[in-house]
Design a binder for these strands. Structure first.
Lengths: 395, 395
DNA sequence: CCGGTTTCTGAAACCGGTTACCGAGCGGCG
DNA sequence: CGCCGCTCGGTAACCGGTTTCAGAAACCGG
């Protein structure tokens, strides 16, 4: 009558076998005669037995979970990233623990705490200190997402510097703009740092004096509105702004519209990321397309492999290619399928993307500037994003 | 020389005590002499020992984790919700597992699987079938977030029906609009269902024929742009739209602007949620404010208490009050602090919110229509959202 | 000096699984 | 008929903690 909670031993008693046999049947390993298997199977189903995750995890020495650390959820970029990551993880029956460090000062300790509950950790670039990152890497496999880790820690990110350079050169050289302002805080994240670097590099390459300090604002849409208020109330408002991401740029558009400032006639605005709205606003946003879903997928797969104990984990930094997407907000005419009014920046390879179907593959061309740690690959399984008709993409 | 991995037994050996003593010291429970405590403490610190989470969890019969199930991450609403939930959980050293069910057909099985790895589950309304919900509730404590659960399962949601009714009545009665279109899919989530219900109720109350079927689109900004394309290309475009959320409404604004349709002169647009951008666009969006952060916090606290084994869990449905926020997109003049041009809908209590400070408390007035399961409370610890200057809020 | 507390510590059971190892039973073959 | 090898299934150790229980030592009042 010791029919307490449902455990292996209980099921074993009910089926008249040993715990080893129950475990063998429930896991489908080892040799069990057909007759015994059936008997055990029946006992399992009859009582709705499901092995306890903790016991199993303890025995296996594996949590069956990975962690995802990010600063906070702002905008489609993070949403997409998290969803992509989660989708990949759930695919391998691994659960995902999240940790938002945003605005928390004791976050490093919490990340370390989390590291003890998972088999691997994906850390968004810039969310934890390098020291802590090393400490984590000593505990569990770690992959840095959208940033670079210390030596030995693999990372996955999108190319930012060259893309930002090309974008800025397009404004400086092709449109002849001067006095551009960068909107975003480079200290915010490695992504923004890279974009700011590219912004400066373009000025250097063209032979212009280095730009002024960036307008340090957050990455959300209302931050862009705020930035517009700041910039457009100046005595001499800038003729163009390079925003750290699309949200900010969209906010800038809204702020400009509220003041009657016309884009691109009075003010040129560019974004970064190519979120769905970027193609839908008017004027459509000139921006840089980032393969967010693939970024997330790659990170997840890399991490899951490492978490599963596969030692063949590359410690390389994976850099995914990005595309400059030229639309109207930079002052270019609406694309009609004909060539651009001005030649694209010489540092980039120009090309047109025609309407591609949902599963269309993007060609696996290696991106230009790569350092020795940099690999550029293409994953044919990742679904490409459908470019809006009429987009002109420059790589 | 058996200095293998760091376990209690290993530390016990090193400190020359028993495992029980190590456990006592590391947990700070029981009686341990000062001298022994120091010796054990030293061994722990010297080797950087931290008890394994799995072993501890197995012994305690508690995972130290809760799950959060939601359809997908779209827009600030979900972001805010998740961040609020996570913040509350991390506060009690509980980790958060996430599961996006979006577009996955086998999600019910995955939710059940997740239930075996956590001490409690917060399930977003409409993401799992009622049957599965009951199954889950038998396994672990469950709280339904933004929706209603089966009897015995507590839930937390914001008031939708009355708010949507008031909003729609405002358009119908105060602005005299007819032929309104509801933009959003009521099957999408309980929230949208409630808003659609309120939309219909307002027509009924005014004595108008029931409105046509809603324009079924998603909840993201680009869905709103799509909806604008659909509606504005009709032979007789509607004079007003009630959008299921602010994102859609913002997209509608963008789509209207692209076609030269003026809001509110040619088209009246309203939203729902009062996300930060709603007050910043022009015209500023008339919408309904929802206490998202509090929604998340309440849910989390309710769940965490239940997960900790406290039996005093109320199985009530908690309904948080919402505010109608009248701005310009409905056709009302810019608020100047003076009275409204037209009287607010008689079903609602009108009032002005002046600039409140960040920690300002909202008065704990009970909301009108409450059923027997409904409680309306006010949590003084939840930070209020700062209303934009000039907003007119109606409750 | 002695019985009774109180304080401290350790051995061992337990949480719920997995699995190494071993022995029993059986069929086939020399 | 005896031996070998294979299949099947059970015993017990183990994963890494917590906790019960009992015993030893110290302490106290009478």
């Amino acid at each position: 009558m010791g029919s307490d909670r449902l455990t292996v031993r209980e099921i074993a008693r009910l089926a008249g076998v040993s715990v080893a046999t129950v475990s063998r049947v429930s896991n489908g390993v080892g040799q069990v005669s057909e007759e015994t298997r059936r008997r055990v199977q029946r006992a399992i189903e009859e009582h709705g037995y499901r092995p306890d995750h903790l016991g199993r995890a303890l025995a296996a020495g594996r949590h069956g979970a990975v962690g995802l650390v990010f600063p906070g959820l702002s905008g489609p970029y993070f949403s997409e990233l998290i969803q992509g990551f989660e989708a990949e993880a759930v695919h391998t029956r691994t659960s995902v623990h999240i940790l938002c460090t945003h605005l928390r000062d004791d976050s490093d300790a919490q990340v370390v705490e989390m590291a003890r509950r998972v088999d691997g950790l994906a850390v968004f670039g810039g969310t934890v200190s390098p020291d802590t990152l090393r400490e984590l890497a000593a505990l569990v496999p770690v992959v840095v997402l959208a940033g670079e880790g210390p030596p030995g820690v693999p990372s996955v990110r999108a190319e930012n510097v060259a893309a930002a350079t090309a974008l800025t050169r397009h404004l400086l050289a092709d449109h002849g703009l001067r006095g551009l302002v960068f909107v975003g805080d480079p200290r915010n994240s490695p992504d923004v740092t890279g974009r700011w670097e590219g912004f400066r590099a373009a000025h250097r390459q063209i032979g212009l004096p280095l730009p002024r300090a960036p307008l340090r604002v957050g990455l959300e849409q209302h931050d862009g509105v705020f930035a517009a208020d700041q910039l457009l109330s100046r005595a001499a408002p800038p003729r163009g702004v390079v925003c750290a991401n699309d949200e900010t740029a969209l906010g800038m558009l809204v702020g400009a519209a509220a003041r009657g400032v016309r884009v691109p006639a009075d003010l040129v605005v560019t974004g970064f990321d190519d979120i769905p709205m970027a193609a839908l606003v008017s004027p459509a946003l000139t921006t840089v397309r980032q393969p967010v879903r693939e970024l997330a997928g790659r990170t997840a797969r890399l991490l899951l492999r490492a978490a599963a104990g596969e030692t063949g984990g590359s410690d390389a930094a994976l850099v995914l290619p990005t595309d400059l997407v030229v639309r109207r907000s930079c002052g270019c005419p609406a694309a009609t399928g004909a060539g651009p009014a001005t030649a694209p920046s010489p540092a980039t390879k120009a090309g047109f993307t025609t309407e591609a179907d949902r599963t269309g593959h993007r060609p696996a061309t290696a991106h230009g500037p790569t350092d020795k740690h940099t690999t550029t690959e293409h994953d044919p399984t990742a679904a490409g994003r459908r470019p809006a008709a009429g987009d002109r993409t420059v790589r």
